[in-house]
Design a protein around this nucleic acid. Sequence first.
RNA 1: GCCGCUGUGGCUAAGAGGUAUAGCGACGCCUUGGUAAGGCGUAGGUCGUGGGUUCGAUUCCCAUCAGCGGCUCCA
Length: 611
Amino acid sequence: MRALYIHADSMEFEAKDKTKVAEEISDNLRNGKMDEVLVVFVTVESGDESKIAYVATEASKDILAAKDRIGAERVMLYPYAHLSNDLAKPKASIELLDLLKDMIASSGAEVTRAPFGWYKAFDIKCKGHPLSELSRDFKGKEEKPAPKGKDTYFVLTTGGEEVSIEDYRGGSDCLRFMIDKEALGKEAPSGGEPEYLRLCRKFGIQWEAMSDAGHMSLAPPGAMMFDLISDYATAIVNNSGINVYNVKGTNMFSLDEPAVKEHADLFGDRLYSIDTGKKKFILRYAACHQQFAMIKNWNISYRQMPFGAFEVADSYRLEQSGETMLCFRTRRLNMPDFHVLCSAMPEAHEYFTRLDGKIYDEIENIGRDYDMLVNFSSRKAFEDNKDMVRMLCEKHEKDALIHIYPEGINYYWTVNIEYHMLDQMNRPREIGTVQIDVGNAERFNITYADEKGEKQHPIILHCAVIGSIERFMYAMLDTAVQIEKTGVPGYLPTWITPDQVRLMPMSEDFVSAAAKTAEELRAEGIRVSVDDTDATVGKKVRRAKQDWCSYSAVIGENEVGSGRLKVYVRSENKDIEMTADELAFRIGHETEGYPVRPMYLPADLSKRCEF
RNA sequence: GCCGCUGUGGCUAAGAGGUAUAGCGACGCCUUGGUAAGGCGUAGGUCGUGGGUUCGAUUCCCAUCAGCGGCUCCA
C-alpha cells in the first residue's frame, strides 16, 4: 500500500462521476471538507490483498504517529489510484480502506474517508512546512496459515521403537545436539567465529560486497573447487544406475502461471522476486519449476519409468539478512537437484532407499557421517512411510529423530529426510536431503501412460545427494578444519586441491628443469604450479605450505642429477622420495574416478597476482 | 527481522579530540639461496557511509550500511 501524506489547512472534495469500480454511496457522502487535517492519499496494491489486516495495522500506526508529530487535528483518507501501477482489486481496496478508517477511529481520532472509485474534484491547501508532505510504502507482514496442533518429536530406534525425547538415551553426538536444537529448542554453545572462514579467505571464497546480502563470489581457487564439485555432483547422479535426463533451465518464472503461483505459496515468504514493470517473476528456489514445466510436455510411458531429471540449478532464497552464512546459507545457491519420477509408492520407496544409500556413500567418501532428521507432513504420512524409514535406520545402524509437523498445513512433500553432519562448532548442519512429493505432478499436470493407456500422475522424489554445491564445499572445508584440530596440517582431497603439485626451482638455473617436469605431470592431467620467483628456498617452501599444495618439491642440483624428488606430502606431513613418474602414479590413483579440471590461474608464480 | 560485538591502505592489526602506525603483500635495487619469512628502499589510507556536537572528529553522539556471534527462521 502506498500513501502520500499532506498536512493541510483545509481539504475539500466533491465526487463528480462514477468510474467502473465505483462504490455505491448516499448523496450526503459525495462531498466533504475538513480543516487542520492530515490528508492521506492511499493506493492499495495487489500485494496487499493477502495481508489486509497487517497492512492496515502498520499504516494506521504510522498515520496516527504522523498526525501527532505534525499536530494535525484530524485525518482524511482519500482513495487515489495514481501512486502505483499495480492496483489491488476494488473489493480488497475498499475492505482495507474501511479497516484502516476503523483502526484510526478506534484510537479516538476524527477520521473520514472519501468515496472509492469516483472521479473527484478536490481543493487542498498544503501548509508547506518540512514535514507537511511525506510518502509511505506499507508492506505488511506476510500472513501465514495458522497451524493446528503442535510439532511432535520422538526418536525412532534401529529396533523400530518409538522413544520419547525425554526417555531417549544414547545416540551419536550429532543426534544429541540435533535433539537439543530441534526438539528442545536449547541454545547452542557459542564458539566465536568458525574456522572454515579462514580457509574461505585462503581460497578466495567470499561475499560479493557489490551485490545483495548473501551473494558469493569466487576467486580462481574457489571457482575451480566449485566447478569440480558441480562436475562431481553431475557424475554421481549420472552414474547412479537411474536413467537420467540432464537439462538446463532458466531461473525466472512468472507468477501469472497458476502452477508457479501455487507452488510459490507453499514455499512461503522467502521468495526472491523481480518486477520488470510489466510482469512479476519469482526466482526459482530449486530446479523444480524448470524440470516440471519441461516434463509436463513429455510423452511418458510406464515403460520408461522410473527416470530422473537433473540440473545444477542456480537457486534463490530470500534468507533473513542476519541469517546468512558463507557457503552455508546464501541467497543465491547452486542446487544439484535431482527429481525421480516413480509410478507408484512401492517404486518410490525403493528409489528413495537407493538415493538414501548414495547420500550416505558420498558423505563417507569425504570422511564424515550423517544423522537423520526425518520430517513428516502429518501423522498419516508417518504411518504410510515408517516401515521404510525404520529399514533405513536399521541399514545405517542409526536412531533417527522424527519430526511430525502440525496437521492442516499443506506441504509439497510428505516425507523429507534432512541429513545432518556435526560441524567444528558442534552444530548439526543439513547437507543432503531426499523427499517424497505427491502433489506437484498434479499441480503441474505431469502424467505418464500406464499399462492400460490411462494417464497417471507419478510420485516425484526430490533429492540433493550432496546438498548444494556451496554446502558440500562447506562440508569439505569443515573436514579440513577437523583434520587441523588433530595437530597435523589441514588438507583437502587431492582431486579438489587447487595446486596439486608445486615445483620449486632452487635458483634461476633450475627453472627450465622444473618446467620440464611440470609438463610431464600435466600430461597426466595433474595441476602443477612452478614457483619461478626469485624468492629464497625457505620462502618458496613457506608459500607452498600456505597454499595447501598437496605435493611440493624443490628442484636443484641433486634432483636433476638423480632424477629423484624429495616430495613433501601434505596429507602425511612428511617428505617422501620418489620419481616424477611415481608421483604421477600416486596422484592418478588418489584422484581416480573424480573430475579433472586444469588450473584456473597462471601456473608460474611469477605471473600470479595476489587476490 | 531481533539482540550483542566489530568496521583504520590489497590483507592482518595498533592507535588517539589536533587529518595516523606497524607487519605482510606490491614495486625497485642488492642477494643465487637446500626446506615455514635474506637485506635496503619506494609507493599506497579523505580511518564503512551520512548527519550532529566542537575552533577542530577518523576518535564523542545519532542514524545508516556491511561483517561476525546468538536468537527467530530455515519445504
